[in-house]
Design a protein around this nucleic acid. Structure first.
Lengths: 303, 303
DNA sequence: GATTGTATATTATTGCCTTAAAGAACAATC
DNA sequence: GATTGTTCTTTAAGGCAATAATATACAATC
């Protein structure tokens, strides 16, 4: 292992602080989700709250954005978006976030394709993916939190069968088809008017054109957010948590699905329809609709 | 923090290897679950497989058991249980496992009672519970895997509202009341005959007297195992996983519940009845029964 | 043929130290 | 009065060396 040491270097030495660029990407992705436009102010505290950070890292990100020409800053006046987050210019910043995900995606792919044994030692993974112990541990902790790997009592980790099974996708949908309608049908289910409004605004925006500019990952993310907001209405965190978990695993094979823009369009229309029914508090009907919605999955085929 | 350093010492220095005693406890607890009696052989590889370890740590545990007088070993003939695992003599070994859980239980209690803020730094927790960073990290990783704490993007961790809410227990049951019957009603649900037999054997044993000797923790554990085995029959790991998760959180407030032996007895009887219906493959009826079973919770009140 | 005994190789933990990252408080500015 | 600029404190990550724990392979025994 001594040979590979020289190929690694502290993150801070590589061009312009990797962390800052990552933060810049997070901010840009947020701006995109929020539908911000060029000229909008980027208020530090607001960003910090949204990303669960303090202002210090946010500033780093903002300065990196400025360096990339995506934001403009005036002394004592803060930063302003220089480009539309949906424009081509914003792509590199967003890609920086994705790059960080590379190893994660590789591992996910290897597990999905059963190129990795179910039980592996950390040492094996370090060798295989060229990671330091610290890097690997971060990764494993994250994956463990997502629920598709777990520490063994002795040495090593075990990947969940959940992921590698070929019918995993169908099973995930079957599970959702149970919990989501049931959540809506729970006594006490309620969705505040403003949540409905926000969801509608977002789905509307996607429906009216933004869809074409979105990556598969973003479409997927937006869909998850929609469903998670709705299930939250049951006021029962167990429903929300279990959906989150399923979604974090579904995301793994989302990469493999092809882009069926027409299907997505219909999908979003169904979301809008669902919101109408929810707005008038016809929850039984909404649950029914949700069940139907989930029975016709957006992402159909993958290798 | 320099002052407290001297008060801590490596685990291996304390009386007779803490790890070995822990392993002994694990073996004893397993023997208990399996309904083993004095005189039964303790086969190393079998234990190793059951506990997901290799033979090396198992031997440590066995030798610790021997030192405690709970097992007898002959050269080249392996170990044999010296006492019934349900007898009083076995208690200290089992307690060793529980002792290890102490900090965990304390934290759980503090979170449940909202004595801890939702967001905490590791440093704060280390100070509060007198743990080294490594110890704390292990603990946090485990709790994170159970899903009631998550790492924040910056420094610190956030406890899930799931746990601290006073209605958490009711919400957990509401969730179970959705997924468990639904799992049984899934097309393709099936429970192998031998699984049914094993479950029945175990519930029967509990019903016929063993109940009195069991701790609350064990009763709870046994119940979880029963339900998890059944939900596994759906062949959909998402159902199983989400139930596991709910159960690991339910366990937190199980400590607080009082022992209602009569209620437990009725509970176990319902389990047996459920098995009968499942055996004849009347799954719709079984789902119905399960729903009813879950609507009348075993653990009713806690402070 | 299954199980135990033993030796050896591999793997991971722990503590320590240095450095980077994040948070918090308050002043300055619009 | 909200927001940014600045400074200072706290917190945690990362790398390294020593040590403990686990796994593995094969021989010995029942």
């Amino acid at each position: 292992m001594t040979a590979s040491d020289s190929s690694r270097q502290p993150a801070s030495r590589r061009g312009g602080s990797e962390r800052a660029e990552h933060l810049a990407g997070l901010i840009m992705a947020l701006a995109r989700r929020e539908g911000m436009k060029a000229g909008d102010r980027l208020i530090e505290q607001r960003l910090a709250d949204a990303l669960d950070l303090s202002r210090a890292p946010i500033r780093l990100g903002l300065r990196a954005l400025e360096a990339a020409g995506l934001a403009r800053g005036e002394p004592h006046r803060g930063f302003v978006l220089a480009k539309n987050p949906t424009s081509g210019a914003a792509q590199p910043a967003l890609a920086a976030v994705r790059r960080r995900e590379q190893v994660y995606a590789t591992i996910a792919g290897d597990v999905l394709a059963s190129r990795l044994p179910a039980d592996v030692t950390e040492a094996e993974l370090m060798r295989r993916y060229g990671l330091s112990r610290a890097e690997l541990q971060r990764l494993l902790d994250r994956i463990a939190a997502e629920g598709w790997v777990a520490r063994l009592p002795g040495y090593g980790w075990r990947f969940a069968e959940t992921v590698s099974s070929p019918e995993a996708h169908a099973k995930a949908m079957a599970f959702r088809a149970v919990i989501e309608p049931a959540a809506i049908a729970q006594p006490g289910f309620a969705l505040p008017q403003e949540v409905i409004a926000r969801l509608r605004e977002r789905q509307q925006r996607v429906f009216e054109g933004e869809l074409e500019k979105m990556t598969i990952g973003e479409v997927f993310h937006s869909g998850c957010e929609f469903h998670e907001e709705i299930i939250r209405g049951a006021g029962n965190p167990f429903f929300l948590e279990s959906l989150r978990r399923v979604n974090s695993i579904r995301r793994l094979f989302a990469y493999r699905s092809f882009a069926d823009r027409d299907g997505m369009r219909r999908h979003v229309r169904e979301h809008l329809r669902l919101l109408e029914v929810l707005e008038t508090r016809r929850y039984a009907e909404a649950a029914e609709l949700m069940a139907k919605h989930l029975r016709r999955p957006l992402v159909a085929g993958f290798s």
